[in-house]
Design a protein around this nucleic acid. Structure first.
Length: 489
RNA sequence: GCCCCCGUCGUCUAGCCAGGCCUAGGACACCGGCCUUUCACGCCGGCGACACGGGUUCGAAUCCCGUCGGGGGCACCA
């Protein structure tokens, strides 16, 4: 890191609203903030934007924090860890907002507006019908003291609006989008404090970012058009402006902003399905960013090392479930250490009612890790290791019927196993070889009957591995049951 | 409607800023083959894109303009 003065320290923030589960889009925003902070040797602050009292819930905040931690995102300051610029929940900062509202009143940057929501709605409709941009007319902008007094005596409530300078063009350099120019006439005087006295997002976000010394505001592109409003407030309050970076948003398969209607899009849902956090981290980072060297699989530390915010692709990205799933499979079969993988898999085994001890789980994971992509696949793939009273599926029964020798193979195998002291892979190989000679069957004719007898299915894990893990006794029991059942079909 | 952002295989992207090294590279998906007692895994191969039009230039995916297309935003939500 170059020598940076303390005041130049990079400070970024992730500021979610606790109104639901952490979803993929927000998770990616958090991720890029985290990666950027770490790459620059700066700090990440977590701030809870709970000014919407209707929808904000503490449970959501807890889940947000839990999901963020799970993903591997760590913050230096936040409601749970504290920090010198707290409090980190907006609902606990109202006195601060009041203080800055006071400053804006003093400097004449804001004024009271007595228009009712109905009147505004009316105006909006009219503007739209006439093809004008639907913005506030400025009706209450220049009310005299007397007019105000009158309106207030009528018992009219008011909001505080920001006085937008007419015709000014705000220019800022976005780290991702480049130079962005927006004329303030696009939006007109906007509300800063509601009639119930609560401050609105565009106002609090500026106060908080400035007071928390945020150097780079990295957020979703849906905030791009809010930026000029915020810049106006920065200037009115005399705050230094941070640098902005607007991330292209994530789209669903239908090319609209990714949301609930695109199916499971919360981090929680992916967790529950058995995605591992490292794969999520990797996959999310790949949405809009790519390492210089040509590889899709890249660990957190390398991402942090290689990351450059200027390399973020500036077109929106369609979320590709299939690719994330594939990536998850790579982590399961190639990256994670077996003990670690097993520990993560245990809750899934239990969820499916597969009970055993760690060593057994570990053996099973070793046997199946190459054939699963998400931990939920354990249900199907590990079935033969846990269930002894399985059904025989259609294909299996069909095979037995079509291959008359099958039952003989199973019976022969049963006899051999019975006389064997223990059943490991080598023994299994030896026994099947003997049967091959005795009954003159080989290949599929030899192995499929045994597979069917032991699992009830025509496909699945390697049989030699299966018998070694479940052991002689269970093999014999399964064979007895299979012979009994298959003789009757 | 208005404003802003964006436009390379079906999808994620490399290349674009510093034009020739691009008959456009990789990955997922899909298709085919190999491996294998099965399904997977793995390996090999195939399919497949510079949105369109005009300029600038000896030369354009790369620079400029226009068109079209996609997305986002226009709240007393964040």
């Amino acid at each position: 890191m170059k020598n940076r003065r303390k005041t130049d320290l990079v400070r970024v923030r992730f500021a979610p609203s606790p109104t639901g589960y952490l979803h993929l889009g927000n998770a990616r925003t958090a991720l890029f903030n985290y990666i950027f902070a770490r790459h620059e040797g700066g700090k990440l602050v977590l701030r809870i934007e709970d000014t919407d009292k209707e929808r904000s819930k503490k449970e959501y905040e807890d889940m947000l924090i839990d999901d963020l931690k799970w993903l591997g995102i760590e913050w230096d300051e936040g409601p749970d860890v504290g920090g010198e610029y707290g409090p980190y929940r907006q609902s606990e900062r109202t006195h601060i907002y009041n203080e800055y509202l006071e400053k804006l009143k003093q400097s004449g940057h804001v004024y009271k507006c007595y228009c009712t929501p109905e009147e505004l709605e009316e105006e909006r409709k009219k503007a739209l019908a006439e093809g004008r941009p639907p913005r506030y007319s400025g009706k209450c902008r220049n009310l005299t003291e007397e007019e105000r007094k009158e309106l207030e005596e009528e018992g009219k409530s008011y909001v505080w609006r920001f006085r937008v300078p007419d015709g000014e063009t705000i220019v800022f350099e976005d780290l991702i989008k480049g130079v962005v120019e927006i004329n303030v006439n696009e939006f007109g005087d906007f509300v800063i404090v509601r009639s119930d006295g609560s401050p609105v997002y565009n106002f609090v976000v500026v106060v908080d970012d400035a007071l928390m010394k945020i150097s780079h505001v990295i957020r979703g592109e849906d905030h791009l058009s809010n930026t000029p409003k915020q810049i106006l407030i920065y200037r009115a309050l005399g705050f230094p402006e941070p640098k902005f970076a607007h991330l292209p948003i994530i789209l669903g398969e239908d090319r609209s902003k990714l949301s609930k209607r695109h199916g499971a899009v919360s981090v929680r849902a992916f967790r529950d399905e058995g995605y591992v956090s490292e794969a999520m981290f990797n996959g999310l980072a790949l949405l809009g960013w790519h390492p210089k060297r040509d590889s899709e699989v890249i660990l957190k530390d390398e991402i942090i090392k290689e990351f450059d915010i200027r390399d973020i692709h500036n077109a929106p990205a369609v979320f590709d479930r299939a690719k994330l799933k594939w990536l998850n499979g790579v982590y399961i079969r190639e990256i994670l250490d077996l003990d670690d993988l097993t520990n993560r898999a245990i809750p899934f085994f239990k969820k499916f009612g597969y009970e055993a001890d760690f060593d057994y789980y570990k053996k099973v994971m070793e046997a199946i890790r190459d054939s699963i992509e998400v931990l939920n696949d354990i249900k199907e793939r590990a079935y033969p290791f846990f269930v002894d009273e399985y059904d025989f599926d259609e294909d299996a029964i069909a095979f037995i019927k079509e291959n008359q020798n099958s039952l003989n193979v199973i019976k022969a195998f049963y006899e051999k196993v019975k006389e064997t002291p223990a059943l490991d892979k080598q023994t299994f190989k030896r026994l099947t070889k003997e049967i091959q000679k005795q009954l003159k069957v080989k290949g599929k004719q030899l192995f499929m009957p045994i597979r069917i007898a032991l699992t009830g299915k025509t496909s699945g894990v390697d049989i030699a591995t299966l018998v070694e893990i479940i052991g002689k006794d269970r093999v014999l029991k399964r064979l007895e049951r299979a012979i009994d059942y298959l003789s009757k079909v």
